[in-house]
Nucleic acid binder design. Structure first.
Lengths: 242, 242
DNA sequence: CGACTAGTTGAGGCCAGTCAATGTTGGTGG
DNA sequence: CCACCAACATTGACTGGCCTCAACTAGTCG
């Protein structure tokens, strides 16, 4: 293609004009710091739907910022059973748990054709040495993941099935909203089985709940297209305890 | 007071001779870095059984290294329901999730009379700027917490009650062992209700399981004193899937 | 068109929660 | 010292929410 000469430089990551700047690692960095970060970030990488970005026990070399598309992260029990532990949208950072052990603790799989910015971790630490704000941001990102996981643990440990699904949808709604999309209408990128795995439920239970929510007038569901019709009711369900 | 002049230096934290050095933040630091870390660490703080070290939404100012005793960390659902999300032994770092939000995301409560080393976070970041190894260690600690939480999520999402309790005991056994204590005989510092809350089970179920494990010859249980009689069986139970 | 994947819905069973009674332990005050 | 109380723990009976198994439909792809 004649456009290739243009598209290659376009492929280079430019944190400074990235639309996700405010959601990603560069949050609040001054221009000089941004430039340093950019210098360490390589070209975008594409991943087709269903392919792996990294897998459990792979050596940890880089973090990945989701640019376009979405990913699930999964962990593997010794038994071979797999569980979804995360659902990642544009602006999210992937692979944070690898920092602790030098190896990835989970696998990341593209849920649709997607693009990520690989951020080599050695570079990142190097830059963080001279840019305290980046060091701070990095730690914050990692720590925020802990808070998030605690929320999921609360969900899995003490909520009923309908409350879990409601929480999942409310949280998803908020995440789409913060990315500039509709908070009431979106397309799920995961199967019922994957949602069930994430929420500690069987796929049949998830399916039944979608039906029930629709009958109750809380949702409009058409396959993976979801429209929230009664947000207060959904919030109530998500926030109440068992 | 004449003794005060003596007791104050005694109370000062000395990472360099701390018996927990290999489990705590100073892991692998060179002497010069250790000295810098020490300089920022304040006097030990004591907490009586049942008292709080910090509570949800408190401003985050410091990390705490457990020196003696044990703590539970709990989070609060909007409904007021409380769930235990962590069980912390000597050498563990408390409060990591506060880094992300400037406020503590959970409460820490002493399960027995305990002592902690408060590590002011502002100091820590300052030191980390000049001691890259410390910056690296800090990030690693935070990230390892994520891996740990993922393990708990797997437990809560896809394991049966007996598998959860077995996993809890195996993990506890390993943690005591790495601290130089017996891996087969220890005293639980949590009530059945707290264990249940951590594992997403009712206190009655936990109690019944302890009884069943005893009947099966896997454990010897006397209140909170536990002796593991058949470690392979316990591991088998912990590692198998539902 | 057949094979396959994803999703929906029904029937039945079991695991674990709830409710309740009782036992045990440790602390407190008369 | 003992009575009393509260917190913790154990055990039984019952129930119900969710899982499992299974059948059927719709959409997709070679």
């Amino acid at each position: 293609m004649a456009t290739l000469a243009i598209s290659i430089p376009a492929l280079r990551t430019r944190c400074s004009n990235c639309s996700l700047r405010e959601l990603c690692l560069p949050v609040g960095l001054v221009p000089a710091a941004l430039a340093a970060l950019e210098a360490g970030v390589q070209a975008l990488e594409r991943r087709r739907k269903g392919t792996m970005l990294f897998r459990v026990a792979d050596p940890f070399t880089a973090l990945y910022a989701v640019r376009v598309g979405s990913f699930k992260t999964t962990i593997l029990a010794e038994s071979g059973r797999e569980q979804v532990v995360g659902y990642h949208l544009p602006g999210d950072l992937l692979g944070l748990d690898g920092i602790g052990t030098e190896r990835h603790g989970c696998s990341a799989i593209a849920l649709e054709d997607s693009e990520v910015c690989p951020i080599p971790f050695a570079n990142l630490e190097e830059i963080a040495r001279t840019v305290p704000a980046l060091q701070h941001n990095l730690c914050q990102f990692v720590a925020r993941e802990i808070s998030h996981d605690h929320g999921v643990m609360l969900l899995l440990g003490s909520r009923r099935a309908d409350e879990r699904l409601a929480s999942f949808l409310v949280s998803l709604s908020a995440r789409y909203f913060s990315r500039g999309y509709s908070s009431t209408e979106f397309t799920l990128r995961m199967t019922r089985e994957e949602i069930g795995s994430y929420l500690g439920l069987s796929l049949e239970t998830v399916s039944r709940l979608f039906s029930r929510f629709q009958v109750d007038g809380v949702l409009e569901v058409d396959g993976r297209n979801v429209r929230i019709r009664d947000m207060p009711a959904l919030r109530l369900l998500a926030g109440r305890d068992a």
